[in-house]
């Protein structure tokens, strides 16, 4: 018996769906959120090969960009911007480090993935506050996984650990 049918699906999947590309914060807005009232002095620099190797060694995460985007904060500390890969695309984020070298806050600047946007949840991001980096700053250890947003939460955590290693190796006063 031959059953004729209609190819419905091609039409169905061409229906446009809402885009999830979201710019949540500009760099200036993130600076104000993490360090209210402070002034910022741009201090971008290029990492040396030795620094890149040391950061990889300390954090276990590959350095993707030699250019370090860092700002000195008038109240002490640093404001850093970096990005990590999500499922498909990069997730730009900002990290504030206080004068004692502890995490003051993180902010997600943009998110372009269809799923996993829960990493913007304030309670999840609050887990980072006061931490000093190190090998235990990982999903499943000091940081809880977000079920259903595992990739994004893992990669952002890895990115924060990388930036904390960068701070310790390149920026911290010796």
């Amino acid at each position: 018996m031959r059953a004729r049918f209609i190819f419905i699906p091609v039409a169905a999947i061409t229906i446009s769906t809402p885009l999830h590309a979201e710019v949540y914060l500009t760099v200036e807005e993130a600076q104000t959120l993490i360090f209210p009232g402070a002034a910022f002095t741009e201090d971008f620099r290029n990492l040396t090969n030795a620094e890149i190797a040391a950061i990889k060694e300390a954090s276990g995460v590959k350095v993707e960009n030699r250019r370090l985007k860092a700002w000195r904060v008038s109240s002490g500390g640093w404001f850093l911007v970096d990005q990590v890969l999500g499922k498909h695309d990069y997730i730009p984020f900002a990290l504030g480090i206080d004068a004692n070298g502890a995490i003051k806050g993180i902010e997600i600047l943009e998110y372009r993935e269809a799923y996993g946007g829960e990493i913007r949840n304030a309670n999840w991001r609050a887990q980072f506050a006061g931490k000093h980096g190190g090998a235990s700053l990982k999903i499943g250890k000091e940081i809880k996984n977000i079920s259903g947003a595992t990739i994004s939460s893992k990669h952002v955590t890895d990115g924060v650990r990388r930036l904390m290693a960068t701070y310790a190796i390149v920026l911290a006063e010796r």
């Binding site: 769906t17 809402p18 885009l19 999830h20 590309a21 498909h88 695309d89 993935e113 269809a114």
Partner: peptide, 8 residues
């Protein structure tokens, strides 16, 4: 394989 946003 290529993916962007909601489609792949």
């Amino acid at each position: 394989h290529y993916a962007k946003g909601e489609w792949w």
